[in-house]
Structure formats: structure tokens, C-alpha cells
Design a protein around this nucleic acid. Sequence first.
DNA 1: TCAAAAGTGTTCACTTTACACCCATGT
DNA 2: ACATGGGTGTAAAGTGAACACTTTTGA
Lengths: 271, 271
Amino acid sequence: MLTISCGLNLQYNPTFVIRKRSMDLREIIISSSKEAYQIYVPHISVDTVIFGFNGDRLTVLLLKMKFNEQWFLPGGYLKKDENLKSAATRILKEKTQLDHIFLQEFSVFSDLNRSEETFKDFPDDLWHKKRFISVGYYALVNYKNISLIADELSESCDWIFLHDLETLPIIMDHHKIIKKALSALRKQISYKPIGLNLLPEKFTLPELQKLYEAILGRSLNRGNFYKKIKNIGILKKLNEQRKGGAHKAPDLYTFDRENYFRILQNGISNW
Amino acid sequence: MLTISCGLNLQYNPTFVIRKRSMDLREIIISSSKEAYQIYVPHISVDTVIFGFNGDRLTVLLLKMKFNEQWFLPGGYLKKDENLKSAATRILKEKTQLDHIFLQEFSVFSDLNRSEETFKDFPDDLWHKKRFISVGYYALVNYKNISLIADELSESCDWIFLHDLETLPIIMDHHKIIKKALSALRKQISYKPIGLNLLPEKFTLPELQKLYEAILGRSLNRGNFYKKIKNIGILKKLNEQRKGGAHKAPDLYTFDRENYFRILQNGISNW
DNA sequence: TCAAAAGTGTTCACTTTACACCCATGT
DNA sequence: ACATGGGTGTAAAGTGAACACTTTTGA
């Protein structure tokens, strides 16, 4: 089941709606700015790159701004009483309702004029107009069973195929952030197990292989992949097959959660 | 040549000096706080873990606080007109005079009550008393030919052996930061060349091996190390030997800078 | 029965590991 | 001469890539 619930959905007469929207929105933003000064640490933000998997290709969760139709990553600010990991966890939960997801810090983005331009038509003391140093986290989640929730700035949110990113108008340096997250993920895949949050409880090796191929962006040899993945010791073979497809029914597996999390902590071997 | 110039060196009657010191220092800190508000972005700091190598063991550059005798990492704040990498570069230069050094971001430290305690006897609006989210960078530099420069807060600065860290009083979470930097460095050593800033212009393979062993914290097999390191393609064998030692004179090498920097960018292979 | 996908086995090449051997040098 | 460290070679074990073969299934 894939539900997408996306806040307001104003439509009909486009020009009227856009004007109406921007007026409401302006007030919303200005009032949220005041609140932000109370709650958050200034100049620090978190951007999360949330990867999903549709069984074939990787997607990224993006939101679409109400007032300029640009796409951007789910993000937020650091509360005065939390650390960055908590902030990233909170932001992930706000957008996807998901908890207990592996979140990995991968880089900090601190260039000048990253964010200042976006709200240039607003008062100078607007919170959002400050310079922000953003800490990037990525997560891997199961594409299905997720109710996406857009925030007050966003008219919609959606899973965007990595492949389609180039064609979208994406805000600020968020395209660069996604690329860097993907690169960090590709590095991680060689020494940390991946898949627990991306695949259903029971899955087949061909499905797992598709996931690896989607992340790495290239096809892998079946026999070699099977050998390698089984060797890691994170798989439990079930006494069931996935019936219903054409052709031979593939064996079902689950993750051996104990081993999975141990290896997630320690890395796959060498270190 | 190893010169260490460390600001003031007050000594003699300890109790008197400490009192005198703390009074001067208090004023210095309070005035630097005012300046800081003008120059820096609040709540963001940079800590640099600068590794050195004495030919046998790894060291870390630490400073010693004037007013509580605790050791801490060279660090600083983010100027309003620079990004984090520039800040880290600037801080490294301030302490070591060195330029063009490879600096690697490795983690962000954002826990609550990281730094607030250190200046608890100062006014509440003191810059240093704010909550700081610190971005960690590490660097590798040649232990020799460096004039260390302590700052206004520090009575001295010194290269501390990794092995001796446990015995020193180290401020805040700086011990944790060093450990994490070392762990990142150990990961990096397997896919990026290391040594250009740590060894003299001309060096021998046994020297390079000692460096690797110091970083990894374990001994390596000589023959295998030679083969592996030569295979990377970053070494140029010179037509000279290091004379003077007992036993066979070892061959001298330099780094092939072109290859070195190319591989530093792209990683050693796989990726 | 057949095409297609799943699962397993085999071969070859290459890398890693362990270790042996020779070389050069100062004492 | 010999102890010590430097430099190279080699065999065994392990890993990864390519590919072939068998099995299973629905059409």
C-alpha cells in the first residue's frame, strides 16, 4: 500500500491560487520564523537524503516548494535541546512516520550563499534567510507502507527516481548533496550490510541483488553475488519460496537481525 | 629542526602566577568574546586533529589551557565570509604555519553540554559559553620543521603521543574526537595514499612502512608491504641510498606527486 | 515441451599471506 | 665473520570474475 498525503492541495484557477497561496504562505513563513528563533539553534540545519527502492530502481524523497515550484530535500533545524542525530531522526519521522531507521551522517555543507537566496523577498530578519551550515544524513527506507507527509512549505512530496533528478528544478545545492549521499552510500555498501529497511520482511536473493545493482548503478553477476552475500552471514534461509511468479519459485530469506546489527556496527570484516 | 614557540611562559611562584594569569586571561577572554560576535558565525566551531609522526610513533598536536591545565585540540570558529574547509585550513596555518595540507572532514560533534561547562565562571553572554556544534577535520603533517604557535588561551602546545593520551586531562569530548579521527584515518589509509606531508622529501620504504604501522597500530609484513605500496604507483625510486645507518643502506624514494594527488582525489582503485 | 529465471559448480586469474633466501653494511 | 636490517622471490591460500550447467516453474 502506498499512500501519499500531502498537506493542502490547492488547485483550480491557477493564477488566482498562486496569488492566494503566496499570501497565506508569506504569513505562515513569517510566523514560523518567529517560532524558530525560540526553538532552534541558528545557522545549523539538517538535510536528509532518504533513499527508497521500488524493486527496480532507487528513489529519493523530495518535497516541492509551494511558492517557486522547486524541489528540495526534507530538512529542518537543530532544536536547542537535541543533538544532530536526534534532529535527523525527528525530521525523518515527521516526513515518513518511520522510526528506528539507520541514519548516517555523510558530509557538511558550509559554502557561502547556500540558502540566502531562496527567501530573498522576505524581511531580513527572517529565520530562513540566515546563513545555514547543513549537516547531511542519509537513510534507506522501504518504499512501500509509507505515508508521506508534506510540511507547511511544500505543496507535495514524492519519490523521485535518481535517474530523473537531472530533469527537475532542484533548490540550492541539494543536487550536490544527493550526489554526495549516493557516493557515501556506495562506499558503505562494501563494508556494511544494506537492505533491512529497504526490502520487505521476507525477500528473495534476486530481489536483494536488484537492490545492490540499483545502488551501485551497474549489474552484478548472479553466481558471484549469491556467494558473496551468503558469506557475510546476515541471511537466514526460510523454508518457503515466493510462489506466483512465472518460472522457478525463488527461495525466501530474512535478515538475521542479530548478525545484521552487529555487522552494521563493526563493519563487514577487515577493519 | 624542531622549534616550539609557545606564547607566554609564566612560571616561578605557582600560586601567585596562577592568580595573575587568570586575571589577565579573564580580560583577554572577555574582549575576544566581543570580537568574536563581530567576526564569526555563532554555534559553529571547527576542531582539527593534526597528526604528526616522529619516525616511530604517531603524535597529535594539543594545546594546554592557561587557566585549568587541561589539554585541548586546536580549533576555532567559522568566519562569516568563509566555509568550513577554509576555516580548518586557517586554523591549521595559525598553529603550524603550514599551508597546502590535506584536510579531511570526518565527523560532526553536536551533543549537548559539550563546551558550556568550560567557561562556567564567565558571564552568560560570553561567546565561548554558547553551545557549539563542532566539525572535525584531521590532517597529517611532518613532525619536523614546524614552529608550533600557541594561542592566547594556551600556555603551551605540544605533540602528544597517541599512546600517552589516556594519561592526560583532556577537555570536553576532545578525546572522543581524536579517537574518531584516528578511526577515519585508518579507513582512509586503505584507499588513499598517505605520507606526503608526514615524511621528509626523500624517504626509505622501511620509514614508510613504520608510518603505516604507526597509523594502523599493528606490524606489517615487509615483503608484502613493499609489493603493495609499489603497486599503487605513487613512488619514484631515486638513485640514492640512505647512508650512515648500520647495516645495508636502504634505497631512497620520493612521491610521484602527479600520481599521488590524482589518486588522492579518486581513491586507490575500486570506487 | 520450452523459455526464462533460479540456484549451483567450475575454472582461471589475480591478490594476499607467510616465509625463505640473498644482499649489503658496520662492528 | 656475523648479526642485523634491506630487498626480492615463491609457494600456498583466498578471493573475485566469467561462465556453464542443472533445476524449477508457468505457459
